[in-house]
Design a protein around this nucleic acid. Structure first.
Lengths: 205, 205
DNA sequence: ATTTATACTGTATATTTTTACAGTATATAA
DNA sequence: TTATATACTGTAAAAATATACAGTATAAAT
């Protein structure tokens, strides 16, 4: 797939956001208004380029006749039964059927990047981050995490939700509650596995 | 939700199928062609009925300005496009189209009692309840609230999300942040209207 | 018997929208 | 130096589209 220029990327994003918000694609004029162009031809030319590169298709002669072929961000509006997994003191959170407490139907792209399952929070260690007991934290399976991310880490069959910080061989798992202390792991002596990171949260009042 | 007539159901289906196939909604004329009508007004009238019954919304003056609010397709049976409304300092949160920031597809029964819309939180007045800025609080429209409930209250065109407490004529709106003070309203002197109560929360990390 | 709701046809028009054409400006490659 | 691609402005006309208005027909409800 050919790469997009900066402006083309902005136009594609604009179309996707508009589509996500309204349910139908924008006109040339609306794209111009959104991106500050003063001529509808500016939008037209970008759309032509996007079509040529295979990102969209344009139904000639139709108003708003733009459809996304390959989206940058996934804006699919469909619903799946997402599993809820209990965060138990021992044992890895796997998607095995016996660990699935229930399923909730929602859009897997409800949170920016998509996610794989919900983790039901136990304990108060993240209370100062506004994460309460029984909150459901949306977890995206990945090992690509940065310092400061809220991550699910497995250490010796024990699974925990904490802020992530890594300096060379030292992994720190930082709680958000002054009554709890940071867990420090020397990765030369002990293994730790990043299961995924939090991309969102839902709570029932 | 009001029931659809046979023909209205056909028109809704037609719009959904077209949308699914092309990525943008049909025109009146295209609906006519698909369903065998000979006048664009036939499609127009069905669309108006569908809007009145809450299945679609129509952007007046826009070509193809149809968006699906409640789909009848089976794979989305338990998922609806729930509106997200900004909590603005002044003005009532209504479901009027201009106040809907976007829609999120999710199960309306995701939270125990069902809910009507999401309210996007501004400010830090409920931070100690784990409610952050830009969190989406799921609101169920009701006036049946008890002391201690987290409620959306309108006082003089100002809308606020606070804990509810009522003693005779005194209504207290209690924040969850020690830097904010409780709002006390003497209901004999001032009006206050309970818009609904919070039944849940979602947050994007 | 009369109203009311559904379900259309047929026409016309104002508005929206696409899209072509004529330019300007700038950076990069040949 | 001359193309070539990107990135626009500005205008205008043709085509697409929404939408109002005036009707017709039928079945069910009052």
């Amino acid at each position: 797939m050919k790469e997009l220029t900066n402006q083309q990327s902005k136009v594609l994003s604009c179309v996707e956001v508009y589509l996500n918000k309204t349910g139908f694609p924008p006109t040339r004029a609306e794209i111009c208004k959104e991106l500050g162009f003063k001529s509808p031809n500016a939008a037209e030319m970008h759309l032509r380029a996007l079509e040529k590169k295979g990102y969209i298709s344009i139904q000639s002669g139709s108003s708003r006749g733009i459809s996304i072929v390959k989206s940058q961000q996934s804006f699919e509006k469909y619903s799946e039964q997402m599993p809820v997994i209990g965060l138990v003191a021992a044992g890895s959170p796997t998607l095995a059927e016996e660990n699935v407490e229930k399923r909730i139907s929602c859009d897997p792209n409800m949170f920016s990047d998509g996610f794989d399952y919900f983790l039901k929070v136990k304990g108060l260690s993240m209370i100062d981050a506004g994460i309460h007991e029984d909150d459901l934290v949306a977890i995206k399976k990945t090992t690509d995490v940065k310092n400061g991310d809220l991550v699910v880490v497995r250490v010796d069959d024990e699974v925990t939700l904490k802020y992530f910080r890594k300096d060379n061989y030292n992994l720190e798992l930082i709680p958000a509650n002054k009554d709890f202390s940071t867990i420090t792991i020397d990765l030369r002596k002990q293994d730790a596995f990043v299961e995924g990171k939090s991309v969102g949260l839902i709570r029932t009042h």
